[in-house]
């Protein structure tokens, strides 16, 4: 396969992904988020000024905080849910509608097809980040100036790209194993639920008095939470101004993302395409 052919396949996957209404909804939602958060912050500030009868006299908002707040709201499940849907449709959806068959019939290795799908999802994530970041930054800077911790803002958005790219690999893995859009949605919901339960379960186990665990084991069980998969896929929080950067979280993210991708690749290479 030539480089030109590879780029043509990736480009086709991206075009296909962005032609879907779910993807367009995701982009529109991201734009609205980028506009909505600064406008809402400005509106509440105006309301507060009116209520306190001190127009223009309140201390200025930190624009970088507003932009980071946009990221927090984006990452609070909202875009993840859309990403699950978009990822599920791109693989399990194509499997169900038989359009995957038409791609597999072509002289393209399945591993290349899967990689192209993953890259298309990464492109979707990048676009949704940019279309949120750009208006949020522009509005915030216009309203409240350029002061602030912009380094953390940039790190946070880049870390989100990395986390969501790993999460996209997980979505593809679940989609290729279950081969059903609904199944992938439910599977990912169970993934979150199971991991939250697991995190709490380990803490409870660590503190069960009758188990008489050694201290190191109790500590390990109680502190493993940040390295469980859902926490790893949320490692971007380590880039926020309020947190201390935790490289281990990103290490776990890399491990889980890679494992998920390997599973997706191995299973996809073997499945029967109807």
């Amino acid at each position: 396969m030539t480089g030109a052919h590879f780029f043509a396949v990736v480009s086709a996957e991206i075009r296909k992904l962005f032609s879907r209404s779910s993807t367009r909804f995701g982009v529109l939602f991201a734009i609205l988020l980028g506009l909505g958060v600064p406008l809402t912050a400005g509106f509440f500030r105006w309301v507060a000024e009116q209520a306190m009868d001190k127009p223009g006299q309140l201390q200025g908002l930190d624009p970088s905080y507003v932009v980071f707040a946009t990221l927090y709201i984006r990452n609070f499940f909202l875009m993840r849910i859309i990403l699950i849907m978009v990822g599920a449709l791109s693989l399990a959806g194509e499997y169900q509608t038989r359009t995957l068959r038409e791609d597999v019939l072509r002289p393209v290795h399945r591993s290349v097809l899967l990689f192209a799908k993953w890259l298309a999802l990464v492109a979707f994530i990048a676009v949704t980040l940019i279309v949120s970041l750009a208006p949020a930054t522009a509005l915030s800077v216009v309203a409240w100036g350029t002061a602030g911790d912009w380094q953390h803002v940039l790190l946070g958005w880049l870390a989100t790209l990395a986390c969501d790219a790993g999460f996209a690999a997980l979505v593809l893995a679940v989609a290729v194993v279950l081969r059903s859009v609904a199944g992938t949605m439910v599977g990912m919901f169970l993934f979150y639920f199971a991991n939250v339960a697991l995190g709490w379960g380990l803490i409870i186990i660590a503190n069960l008095p009758f188990l008489k665990l050694p201290d190191w084991a109790r500590d390990a069980l109680a502190n493993v939470g940040p390295y469980l998969p859902p926490a790893a896929y949320d490692a971007w929080t380590g880039a926020s101004p309020a947190s201390e950067f935790a490289g281990t979280g990103f290490g776990a993210l890399a491990v889980y993302g890679l494992l998920a991708y390997i599973v997706a690749d191995r299973v996809f290479a073997r499945i029967d395409v109807p």
Partner: peptide, 8 residues
Amino acid sequence: ELAAAYAG
């Protein structure tokens, strides 16, 4: 167009 891209 998509199929042409896959076909190389």
